[in-house]
Computed example of a mutant assay.
Amino acid sequence: MNRILLLVTLLTVVLCITSFAQLNIAIDGQKDDFYKTLTGPDDGHLWIPSAAGNDNGIPDDDWDLSAYLWSAWDETYFYVYEEVSDERVNQNNATNWQNDCLEIKIDPDPYNADGTVWATRLTALDSADVPENVWNGIDNLFAEAWATTERATRADYFKAETDSGYVLELRLKWDWIGTTLKGPVVPEAGTDFGLAYMNHDNDDAAREGSIEWATVLVDAVWNNCGNHGTVILLEGNKLQYLAENIRTGEAYPNPELWIPPGASSVSDRVAVARDYALHQNYPNPFNPATTIDYHVGLDAHVQIGVYNLRGQLIDMLVDRQQPPGTYSTQWRGIDLNGNDVPSGVYLVRMVSGPFERTRKMTLVR
């Protein structure tokens, strides 16, 4: 009997170690091997394209601003690694959120009606890279509504420019993530909490647009927990992203928006871009029709769809296999049923193998 009890105890210890293994991911700007095992939102990997722009403004395309994001957790930390495509990396504003940066908004307890949001931010550049008069615009994980007096240090984040934009890496202690009335988050499998990611884009002197992972793509995730998505901690240090809000029940209508395409990194996408292209429509603005030229680099299935700003499919222009070459298609301002759509800004999105790109179009009736 004692041997059986000992065996059960040992198995319990092994299971606990397996479920809550300390990852000890190095915060060095290099993609950890653990991240390379992740495949999509169901295990902690997100693609945040320009089509996920919000009411701050939508980036011109995925090269103007888009991001791959990987995440993980253990008993001590919430880890995030992000590769950002940004044609111009800027930090020239004394207000942190007006610069290129990643913002993380967390609702530690989405079942609590209190609306307080825990927030932190990591800007793309550091003091050595920007003029002294905009040092106030640098944010290295200073957080609002800290649960403890402890603060992040240089060991908790990494940032660097790359050929195609910048890379950010960070870790947040679970003990930090809480407000006066909510939290901190309990790091165990099955725990869920609200969250929104937002990257800002400064191409001149201030923020011109943002991309986002949330339930409702608006800037107001900073003060409205009802716009957050849901994160569930899973066994094996993985987590799941659900584009729906626990409290309101609202879900983003097109969760496929955040599924990573075939290319596994920003650098891969830059290489693919040499063989593919989705050109800006012309004329733009337009009425009643506009032309879209595109180039296919490989013999592959091509989809070109028109979407509204909520990510809902309006019309499918191309959905077929095509050999390499240059092509054109037209959109006549109609939906899938042939009905005229109202004036406004629409997104045309091309997906073919590892290539994905989005452009904005303006219809004026």
Rank of each mutant, 00 (worst) to 15 (best):
Q22N: 15
L23V: 05
N24Y: 07
N24D: 14
I25M: 08
I27S: 10
D28G: 11
Q30Y: 11
D32V: 00
K36R: 10
K36L: 02
T37S: 14
T39G: 01
G40V: 02
G40D: 05
P41R: 12
G44L: 04
G44F: 01
H45L: 14
L46K: 05
L46H: 07
W47T: 04
W47A: 03
W47S: 01
S50E: 05
S50N: 03
A51C: 07
A52V: 03
D55P: 04
D55T: 11
N56P: 00
I58T: 06
I58L: 10
I58S: 02
P59A: 10
D61I: 05
D62P: 06
W63V: 09
D64Q: 04
L65K: 13
A67C: 08
Y68V: 00
L69V: 13
W70C: 05
A72D: 07
W73Y: 11
D74Y: 07
D74G: 10
Y77L: 01
F78W: 10
F78H: 03
F78Y: 04
V80P: 00
S85T: 08
S85F: 09
N92E: 09
N92I: 15
N93W: 13
N93F: 15
A94F: 15
A94G: 10
T95S: 13
N96D: 14
N96Y: 15
Q98R: 14
N99C: 12
D100P: 03
C101F: 12
C101V: 08
E103D: 13
E103H: 11
